[in-house]
Design a protein around this nucleic acid. Structure first.
Length: 147
DNA sequence: CGGGAACCTG
DNA sequence: CAGGTTCCCG
């Protein structure tokens, strides 16, 4: 799901995990889960952005995220270990935008500000796309595998 | 990834 | 105040 939405609302989570009986704990735990996902995501982004700068990248045009990028591999390894899901194209775009966003911010020296990442988060949270209906099914994993 | 603290926002 | 987020730790 993270490949589609980085900031799912609690209502969205309830819709997509229809087989789970929600209570306060479960809900916050699920929210926490996505929070952890984002954490990893942004850490990777920053890491690769800084690495690109150290490698001498000068412009944002030199940063792209494709299915054979190291960054892509790191993310896929984390969220999609068994390669069960086909990562949507849109995710690559969002990842690339995020990477460039970090790159520009660091190059501009904005990382001296303790809360410099906040601005980036604001951009990224608007880039969520709709999650395919199939994910609502309790058996979505099986169904996706049989496609 | 889970726990927990600090923090922000409605 | 409750729900949501981030940050830091293990």
């Amino acid at each position: 799901m993270f490949f589609y939405t980085r900031y799912p609302s609690s209502n969205m989570l309830k819709m997509f995990f229809s087989d789970v009986k929600f209570n306060r704990c479960i809900t916050s735990q699920l929210i926490k889960w996505f929070s952890n996902f984002r954490e990893f995501y942004y850490i990777q982004m920053e890491k690769f952005a800084r690495q690109a700068i150290n490698d001498g990248a000068t412009g944002t045009e030199e940063l792209s995220v494709s299915r054979d990028s190291e960054l892509y591999r790191a993310l896929n390894m984390h969220y999609n270990k068994a390669n069960d899901f086909e990562v949507p194209e849109r995710f690559l775009e969002v990842a690339q935008i995020t990477l460039r966003e970090f790159f520009n911010a660091i190059v501009a020296g904005k990382d001296v500000d303790p809360s410099w990442k906040k601005a980036i988060y604001k951009v990224i949270c608007k880039l969520d796309s709709e999650v395919p209906e199939i994910f609502k099914s309790p058996n979505c994993l099986q169904e996706l595998l049989h496609e």
